[in-house]
């Protein structure tokens, strides 16, 4: 019974610490709202159709602004996702290294060796070249 109470108290403390995070997100929204609200009392509003044309160095825009973009961004994004997930595996190891000792170190050496092989493969295949 006591263990359950203790667990509940720990859980409540854990959730409460993230309540602060949530409150700070709210505070950011509130700050934006307050500043834009204050601005709306002061700023002029004189609508003219020319003001709402997209700015493209003074020339009237041609075609849609929602244009297609180069595929190279996608390749780099994929590469990032892979390496980021692998970085996630390094994090728990980093804090437990003291307890894991030499065994943990060898495991991580193998892991990072494979990671570097992957990077070298991508390099060799020309994925890292920005074309």
């Amino acid at each position: 019974m006591k263990a359950v109470t203790r667990l509940r108290a720990a859980m409540s403390g854990f959730l409460r610490s993230y309540l602060t995070v949530l409150i700070f997100m709210g505070a950011a929204v509130l700050m934006v709202g307050a500043m834009l609200g204050a601005g709306s009392l002061l700023r002029p509003k004189r609508p003219q159709p020319q003001k709402y044309i997209n700015y493209e160095s003074g020339v009237d825009p041609v075609g849609s602004g929602f244009s297609q973009s180069h595929v190279r961004y996608y390749v780099f994004a994929l590469l990032f996702v892979m390496f980021d997930v692998e970085a996630v595996f390094i994090f728990p190891w980093a804090v437990r290294l003291e307890a894991l000792g030499a065994f943990g170190l060898y495991e991580m050496l193998i892991f990072i060796f494979i990671l570097i092989l992957g990077l070298l493969y991508a390099w060799r295949k020309g994925v890292l070249r920005w074309v």
């Binding site: 997209n54 700015y55 493209e56 825009p61 849609s64 602004g65 929602f66 244009s67 973009s69 961004y73 780099f76 994004a77 990032f80």
Partner: peptide
């Protein structure tokens, strides 16, 4: 923004930040 410059800038920013 529906602006070509904005879109290029945003993609460059995303590519650089990641």
């Amino acid at each position: 923004s529906a602006n070509k410059y904005s879109l290029i800038g945003a993609l460059r920013a995303a590519g650089q930040l990641i």
